[in-house]
Amino acid sequence: MENDTTKKLYEVGYLLIPLIPEDKVADEVNTVRSYIENTGGFIVSEEQPKMRKLSYEIKQRGMASKKARFEDAYFGSMRFQATAEAVLAVNESLDKNDKILRFLMIKTVKEVPRVPRTGVPAKSKSEVVDLDKKVIMSDVELDKEIDQLLDVSKVVA
């Protein structure tokens, strides 16, 4: 638990080239996982790569001569805890991997459950209605209350 103070939560999103057959995508995920775990990182959660259409064509890195361009790719992501030095090492090894088209390493925070802001105006309305009711109910009691208040003021005077 001592390391938890130096370890921070990071997230890596990556695009795998679409030439990989679907059965072998898991192997690529394992290599990415090994990069993180070999440097002492701890994987918190992960999203399995899914084939999706890209918004624009991406050239394969280091293959400029072949002019390999891709319109779709497998997109996956991982959240992990690691030290700053370990992240640099992971970055380097991801950079060298030819099967990764592109990746994005970001520092994140723990996921916070969403709490929509609803029902606030409704509550205040109901309170107002309650106040009105009290006033209507206390037609007889009102006289008593005024008398009491008068008595109190007399005592004070």
């Binding site: 624009y56 991406i58 790719a73 997109f75």
Partner: peptide, 13 residues
């Protein structure tokens, strides 16, 4: 901007 980098959202269309 992050989504654009990973081609999840286009830069221009």
């Amino acid at each position: 901007k992050r989504a654009r980098h990973l081609a999840l959202v286009p830069f221009v269309s």
